Simulated assay, not measured.
Amino acid sequence: MRRFLYKCLAGILLVITPVTVIADEPSFITVGTGDITGVYYPVGGAICRLLNKELDRHGIRCVVESTPGSAYNLKALRRGSLDLAIVQSDWLFHATRGSSIYTAAGADTDLRSLLTLHTEDFTIVVRSDSGIDSLEDLRGKRVNLGDPGSGQRNTMDLVLSELGWSYSDLEDVGELQASEMPLALCSGQIDAFIYYVGHPNTSVGEATTFCDSRLIPLPQTLIKRFSEKYPFYRAGEIKGGLYRGNPSDIDTFQLSAVLVANKKLPNNIASELLRVINENFEEFRNMHPALNALNKRSVFTRVGHFAPVHPAVEQYPEQ
């Protein structure tokens, strides 16, 4: 009888043990970012490093994925292939409303904001001998606009529309990745490139280091028109002295990068992420120069401007 009871107990343990192991395994989350030379990738890495430092406490392992950028990230969130993503606030706005490039797909009502991150500036970099001194001078030039469907390409489409231009007004429209732009500019393959990015940035730094290149300002009339017409754009400037040969501030318009998730992201994961950022905020700010200007008020309280907030944010004291 005793032998029979031992066998039964052993059988029960065999059934229970695998369940216990699974419960102790970490939860994996993936953060979609952008090109490795941009700002999204290192910012996503900063978020993951802070989370992973406390893996033993919360059991969440964070992984960064390099992607083509905002438009891709929003689609990936919709189909469930990313857990979190960093995106431009303009395309987040359109995705939640089913407008602009998301008209056919319809509104994604499952998107939820978590954090407002760094600002991003509409940036035009030209080779100094290209004869380009203003936005109007891009007409008839070889300009890299980036991947079709990318956030910055769609923004440039808006700029062209405001100018009354089409792609035919440019000699050539480039579709190079961000990491390819500096060499293409300095070798004479292109005359200029457009980049919507936080500063300082690796690709812009390389372009101004490898050859004589300049950032050119946008006209105030265009900045004012964009700021008044679109709720996600505002006047801004790229600080002078960040790049070789560019000592002056550059007028432009800017927007915010936002960390977003699908509403199905478990509340405990979202809450731990917010806690980690809050408790290690100074360390987070110093993990990339583009984050240096952040303050808790803007990071936690401006997050619901373009998409509904995740329930974890609503419960958070800073909100």
Rank of each mutant, 00 (worst) to 15 (best):
F281M: 01
N246F: 03
A257Q: 13
I250N: 01
G106L: 13
I190N: 02
L92F: 14
L5R: 06
V125R: 08
N262G: 12
S113W: 03
Y40R: 15
R244A: 05
E272Y: 08
F253M: 00
V260P: 08
T103N: 02
I22D: 10
E228C: 02
Y316H: 15
L259W: 06
L185Q: 07
F306T: 06
C62S: 09
P182S: 02
V43K: 11
H58Q: 13
L111C: 05
R97Q: 15
Q152K: 07
E318A: 14
R225N: 09
T96C: 04
T37C: 12
M287D: 04
L74W: 12
N278T: 07
I101M: 15
R275Q: 13
Y243H: 01
M1V: 06
Y167E: 14
L84E: 03
Y72W: 15
D35T: 11
E162P: 04
A235F: 02
L242T: 00
H288F: 14
A235W: 08
I86F: 00
S128W: 07
R234C: 03
A71N: 13
N73A: 06
Y233T: 01
L158K: 07
D157E: 11
D157Q: 00
T103Y: 06
N246H: 03
D121F: 11
E120C: 09
P311W: 11
P68S: 11
L274M: 03
T202M: 05
D249N: 10
T252N: 00
F193I: 06
H118A: 11
S70F: 09
N201K: 01
E206Y: 09
E180C: 06
Y102E: 00
S298L: 10
Q315K: 14
V299E: 05
V31A: 11
